[in-house]
């Protein structure tokens, strides 16, 4: 790992301080997050692990501007997201964040290329859709509709869509959750490439523990709180991961 990256890692891109999130589910309050302090550093590859219900998706949604904390603050660099309006959050997502979800969330009526173009048309300095798709190894399948692609291919289109806008932050929520091992690894390789080649700050949420071996830093959530945080001295590449 070169020197500049080491330095960059200390620059906080996203910070959450004392974040709690409470949902009202019928008659009871559910405390999804209970006072989380968390930061995402420039250029790092972070893996957020935890059991189901530990609050990792809630945290990512708050960091990605999809949700607001009940208490605490969230900042993107020095911009306060805690009190941002709906419109400001939309602009934040549009300009700075790329999302990858477990179930791809592609537009079924658009081809692979068009699904990516959907983002490049509204982004400020995007890659060309073809470039983005080439990065994820789908140069040959530009004009296929989602219904004509396998799950792994669809997820790669989703990754291409997320990175095509050259986002500063790439948030991936269980990106391999719906995939078989082989396809899962290919998707992880693509995410890894984005992190390394584009320098995109990347956070991957998973309950699949082996994936954390890819990370420069691992955060473990338990019952709505940060349970443990560690740095990996040696990182495995995606192709070395087994589960």
């Amino acid at each position: 790992m070169n020197r500049t990256l080491e330095e960059g890692m200390e620059t906080e891109v996203l910070t959450a301080r004392g974040v709690t999130r409470t949902y009202r589910m019928g008659e009871v309050d559910v405390h999804a997050l209970r006072g989380v302090d968390f930061s995402l550093h420039q250029g790092e590859f972070l893996v957020l692990v935890g059991a189901s219900g530990s609050g990792k998706s809630t945290l990512m949604n708050i960091l990605g501007g999809l949700d607001r904390p009940t208490e605490g603050t969230v900042h993107f660099r020095d911009r306060d997201l805690t009190h941002a309006t709906d419109r400001e959050l939309t602009t934040f997502r549009r300009n700075h964040v790329g999302f990858v979800f477990q179930f791809y969330n592609l537009m079924p009526s658009l081809t692979a290329r068009e699904n990516v173009a959907l983002v490049t048309e509204i982004a400020r300095d995007p890659l060309r859709p073809e470039e983005a798709l080439e990065m994820v190894g789908l140069k040959e399948r530009l004009d296929h509709f989602p219904s004509q692609l396998s799950g792994g291919e669809q997820q790669r289109v989703a990754v291409a869509r997320a990175i095509a806008k050259r986002p500063e932050i790439l948030l991936c929520d269980e990106p391999t959750g719906a995939l078989d091992y082989r396809s899962g690894v290919v998707v992880l390789e693509v995410i890894e490439r984005a992190n390394q080649e584009l320098g995109t700050t990347t956070a991957v949420i998973t309950h699949n523990a082996p994936i954390s071996d890819m990370a420069s830093r691992v955060v473990i959530l338990h019952d709505g709180q940060v349970d443990e945080e560690r740095r990996n001295d040696t990182r495995k590449s995606a192709s070395e991961i087994r589960w």
Binding site: T90, T91, V97, F99, P108, V119, I122
Partner: peptide
């Protein structure tokens, strides 16, 4: 689909 679009930054 529409919610997905909202998530990736559509107004």
């Amino acid at each position: 689909d529409l919610a997905s679009l909202r998530v990736i930054g559509f107004t």
